[in-house]
Amino acid sequence: MHLTNKLSLSCIMTTVLLMSGCQTYIQPQKTLQKSPENILQKDTFQIDGKIGVRTVQQSGSAFYTWSQQGNHFTIDLTGALGIGKTHIEGSPGQVTLTSAKTGTISATSPEELLEKATGWQTPITHLIQWVQAKPATVEAKTTQDAQHRISEIIEDGWNVTLIYNDESQKLPNKLILKQSLSNQEENRITMVIQNRA
Protein backbone atom coordinates (compact mmCIF):
# COMPACT_ATOMS: atom_id res chain seq x y z
CA MET A 1 0.00 0.00 0.00
CA HIS A 2 2.94 2.31 -0.30
CA LEU A 3 2.85 5.40 -2.40
CA THR A 4 6.57 6.00 -2.53
CA ASN A 5 9.12 3.41 -1.62
CA LYS A 6 7.14 3.13 1.60
CA LEU A 7 3.88 2.38 -0.25
CA SER A 8 4.64 -1.14 -1.31
CA LEU A 9 5.43 -2.55 2.05
CA SER A 10 2.30 -1.18 3.66
CA CYS A 11 0.15 -2.60 0.88
CA ILE A 12 1.19 -6.15 1.50
CA MET A 13 0.55 -5.79 5.19
CA THR A 14 -2.80 -4.06 4.77
CA THR A 15 -4.42 -6.84 2.84
CA VAL A 16 -3.07 -9.63 4.99
CA LEU A 17 -4.12 -7.76 8.10
CA LEU A 18 -7.68 -6.98 7.01
CA MET A 19 -9.06 -9.02 9.87
CA SER A 20 -6.59 -7.90 12.53
CA GLY A 21 -7.47 -5.85 15.55
CA CYS A 22 -6.24 -2.39 16.47
CA GLN A 23 -2.75 -2.00 17.86
CA THR A 24 -0.78 0.79 19.41
CA TYR A 25 0.70 3.28 16.96
CA ILE A 26 4.44 3.86 17.10
CA GLN A 27 5.62 7.09 15.48
CA PRO A 28 7.93 6.35 12.53
CA GLN A 29 11.47 7.68 12.81
CA LYS A 30 13.44 9.75 10.30
CA THR A 31 13.80 8.04 6.96
CA LEU A 32 17.23 7.66 5.37
CA GLN A 33 17.93 10.23 2.65
CA LYS A 34 18.07 8.87 -0.89
CA SER A 35 18.79 10.48 -4.22
CA PRO A 36 16.26 9.99 -7.07
CA GLU A 37 18.75 7.74 -8.91
CA ASN A 38 19.15 5.50 -5.86
CA ILE A 39 15.41 5.25 -5.35
CA LEU A 40 14.88 4.06 -8.93
CA GLN A 41 17.80 1.64 -8.79
CA LYS A 42 16.95 0.06 -5.45
CA ASP A 43 13.20 0.20 -5.64
CA THR A 44 12.55 -1.43 -9.00
CA PHE A 45 11.95 -5.15 -8.55
CA GLN A 46 9.39 -7.92 -8.55
CA ILE A 47 9.06 -10.52 -5.83
CA ASP A 48 6.53 -13.20 -5.05
CA GLY A 49 5.95 -15.73 -2.32
CA LYS A 50 3.84 -16.24 0.76
CA ILE A 51 3.10 -14.01 3.73
CA GLY A 52 1.62 -15.10 7.05
CA VAL A 53 0.28 -13.04 9.93
CA ARG A 54 -0.30 -14.11 13.51
CA THR A 55 -1.88 -11.69 15.97
CA VAL A 56 -3.49 -12.14 19.37
CA GLN A 57 -6.90 -12.23 17.64
CA GLN A 58 -6.17 -14.56 14.71
CA SER A 59 -3.79 -15.80 12.05
CA GLY A 60 -3.81 -16.32 8.31
CA SER A 61 -1.70 -16.35 5.18
CA ALA A 62 -1.73 -15.29 1.54
CA PHE A 63 0.28 -15.69 -1.64
CA TYR A 64 1.54 -12.41 -3.08
CA THR A 65 3.11 -10.88 -6.17
CA TRP A 66 4.66 -7.45 -5.59
CA SER A 67 5.92 -5.31 -8.49
CA GLN A 68 7.78 -2.09 -7.64
CA GLN A 69 8.68 0.40 -10.37
CA GLY A 70 10.23 3.43 -8.69
CA ASN A 71 7.36 5.21 -6.94
CA HIS A 72 4.62 3.04 -8.46
CA PHE A 73 3.70 -0.43 -7.24
CA THR A 74 1.11 -3.16 -7.62
CA ILE A 75 0.50 -6.04 -5.23
CA ASP A 76 -1.81 -8.98 -5.85
CA LEU A 77 -2.74 -11.29 -2.99
CA THR A 78 -4.70 -14.52 -3.14
CA GLY A 79 -6.07 -16.55 -0.27
CA ALA A 80 -5.74 -13.71 2.23
CA LEU A 81 -7.65 -14.80 5.34
CA GLY A 82 -10.55 -16.05 3.29
CA ILE A 83 -11.19 -12.79 1.45
CA GLY A 84 -10.14 -14.06 -1.96
CA LYS A 85 -8.08 -12.07 -4.45
CA THR A 86 -7.01 -8.57 -3.48
CA HIS A 87 -5.32 -5.98 -5.70
CA ILE A 88 -3.42 -3.04 -4.23
CA GLU A 89 -1.98 -0.27 -6.37
CA GLY A 90 -0.22 2.93 -5.47
CA SER A 91 1.72 5.94 -6.62
CA PRO A 92 2.52 9.18 -4.77
CA GLY A 93 -0.69 10.61 -3.26
CA GLN A 94 -3.01 7.73 -4.19
CA VAL A 95 -3.30 4.15 -2.91
CA THR A 96 -6.21 1.80 -3.62
CA LEU A 97 -7.14 -1.64 -2.35
CA THR A 98 -9.75 -3.65 -4.24
CA SER A 99 -11.28 -6.99 -3.27
CA ALA A 100 -14.63 -8.68 -3.71
CA LYS A 101 -15.27 -8.51 0.02
CA THR A 102 -14.31 -4.88 0.68
CA GLY A 103 -14.88 -3.26 -2.70
CA THR A 104 -12.44 -0.42 -3.38
CA ILE A 105 -10.81 1.50 -0.55
CA SER A 106 -8.73 4.57 -1.42
CA ALA A 107 -6.39 6.74 0.62
CA THR A 108 -3.59 9.23 0.15
CA SER A 109 -1.03 7.24 2.13
CA PRO A 110 -0.34 3.62 3.05
CA GLU A 111 -0.89 4.33 6.74
CA GLU A 112 -4.29 5.89 6.04
CA LEU A 113 -5.29 2.93 3.86
CA LEU A 114 -4.18 0.45 6.51
CA GLU A 115 -6.22 2.21 9.15
CA LYS A 116 -9.31 2.38 6.89
CA ALA A 117 -9.05 -1.30 5.97
CA THR A 118 -8.11 -2.75 9.36
CA GLY A 119 -8.25 -0.11 12.08
CA TRP A 120 -4.59 -0.91 12.67
CA GLN A 121 -2.15 1.98 13.08
CA THR A 122 1.47 0.99 12.69
CA PRO A 123 4.60 2.19 10.88
CA ILE A 124 4.97 -0.64 8.38
CA THR A 125 6.34 1.61 5.67
CA HIS A 126 9.83 0.19 6.04
CA LEU A 127 9.20 -3.19 4.41
CA ILE A 128 10.46 -2.06 1.02
CA GLN A 129 13.89 -1.49 2.57
CA TRP A 130 13.80 -4.59 4.78
CA VAL A 131 13.22 -6.96 1.82
CA GLN A 132 16.39 -5.44 0.34
CA ALA A 133 18.32 -6.13 3.57
CA LYS A 134 18.57 -2.46 4.51
CA PRO A 135 17.36 -0.38 7.45
CA ALA A 136 14.85 2.35 6.64
CA THR A 137 15.82 4.94 9.26
CA VAL A 138 18.99 6.31 10.79
CA GLU A 139 17.77 5.18 14.23
CA ALA A 140 17.66 1.49 13.25
CA LYS A 141 19.90 -0.99 15.06
CA THR A 142 21.34 -3.77 12.92
CA THR A 143 23.25 -7.00 13.41
CA GLN A 144 25.37 -8.66 10.72
CA ASP A 145 26.12 -12.32 10.07
CA ALA A 146 29.50 -13.92 9.29
CA GLN A 147 29.13 -12.88 5.61
CA HIS A 148 28.61 -9.22 6.66
CA ARG A 149 24.95 -9.25 5.60
CA ILE A 150 22.30 -7.67 7.79
CA SER A 151 20.66 -10.48 9.76
CA GLU A 152 18.57 -8.41 12.19
CA ILE A 153 17.00 -4.97 12.16
CA ILE A 154 15.39 -3.36 15.21
CA GLU A 155 13.36 -0.38 14.08
CA ASP A 156 10.20 1.53 15.06
CA GLY A 157 8.97 -1.12 17.47
CA TRP A 158 9.67 -4.06 15.15
CA ASN A 159 12.35 -6.74 15.41
CA VAL A 160 13.10 -8.09 11.92
CA THR A 161 15.07 -11.29 11.38
CA LEU A 162 16.45 -11.77 7.85
CA ILE A 163 17.13 -15.35 6.73
CA TYR A 164 19.24 -16.30 3.70
CA ASN A 165 19.05 -19.69 1.92
CA ASP A 166 22.82 -19.98 1.55
CA GLU A 167 26.06 -18.14 2.25
CA SER A 168 26.36 -16.67 -1.26
CA GLN A 169 23.00 -14.87 -1.30
CA LYS A 170 23.01 -11.12 -0.80
CA LEU A 171 19.26 -10.68 -0.30
CA PRO A 172 17.05 -12.55 2.18
CA ASN A 173 14.63 -15.32 1.27
CA LYS A 174 12.62 -14.96 4.46
CA LEU A 175 11.80 -12.16 6.90
CA ILE A 176 10.27 -12.65 10.34
CA LEU A 177 8.84 -9.44 11.79
CA LYS A 178 7.87 -9.31 15.47
CA GLN A 179 6.11 -6.53 17.36
CA SER A 180 6.02 -6.95 21.12
CA LEU A 181 2.72 -6.22 22.84
CA SER A 182 1.69 -6.08 26.47
CA ASN A 183 1.41 -9.29 28.55
CA GLN A 184 4.37 -10.82 26.66
CA GLU A 185 2.25 -11.25 23.53
CA GLU A 186 3.34 -10.30 20.02
CA ASN A 187 2.27 -9.75 16.45
CA ARG A 188 4.31 -11.84 14.03
CA ILE A 189 4.56 -11.54 10.27
CA THR A 190 6.48 -14.11 8.24
CA MET A 191 7.30 -13.22 4.65
CA VAL A 192 8.79 -15.87 2.37
CA ILE A 193 10.31 -14.60 -0.89
CA GLN A 194 10.27 -17.43 -3.41
CA ASN A 195 11.30 -15.48 -6.53
CA ARG A 196 13.01 -12.16 -7.26
CA ALA A 197 13.27 -10.40 -10.59
Rank of each mutant, 00 (worst) to 15 (best):
M1N: 02
L3P: 09
N5I: 15
N5T: 09
K6P: 01
K6Q: 04
L9H: 08
C11Q: 10
C11K: 12
I12T: 05
I12M: 14
M13F: 10
T15Q: 05
L17V: 02
L18K: 12
S20A: 15
G21M: 01
G21V: 03
Q23V: 13
T24N: 09
P28Q: 12
K30M: 15
L32I: 10
Q33Y: 15
K34G: 05
E37M: 14
N38R: 12
L40Y: 06
Q41H: 05
Q41G: 05
K42V: 11
D43R: 09
F45L: 09
G49N: 04
G49Q: 00
K50P: 03
V53Y: 02
V53E: 00
S59R: 02
S61E: 04
Y64I: 03
T65M: 07
T65H: 03
Q68N: 12
T74F: 05
D76N: 08
G82A: 06
T86H: 11
I88H: 02
E89S: 14
E89V: 11
G90W: 00
G90I: 02
S91T: 03
T96N: 07
S99W: 06
A100N: 13
T102K: 14
T104S: 06
I105W: 01
A107N: 06
T108S: 10
T108F: 03
S109H: 06
E112G: 07
E115S: 09
K116F: 07
K116L: 10
A117V: 13
T118F: 03
G119T: 00
T122A: 13
T122Q: 09
T122R: 08
T122L: 08
T122P: 04
Q129A: 12
K134Q: 15
P135F: 08
A136F: 04
T137Q: 07
V138M: 11
K141N: 12
K141P: 05
T143D: 08
D145S: 07
A146W: 06
R149V: 11
R149W: 12
I150R: 06
I150N: 06
S151A: 13
D156S: 13
W158R: 12
L162A: 07
L162I: 03
S168C: 11
Q169V: 13
Q169F: 06
L171K: 10
L171D: 02
N173K: 14
N173S: 15
K174N: 03
I176C: 04
Q179A: 11
Q179E: 04
S180A: 15
S182R: 08
N187V: 06
N187A: 01
I189R: 04
I189S: 00
V192S: 08
V192I: 11
V192W: 00
A197S: 12
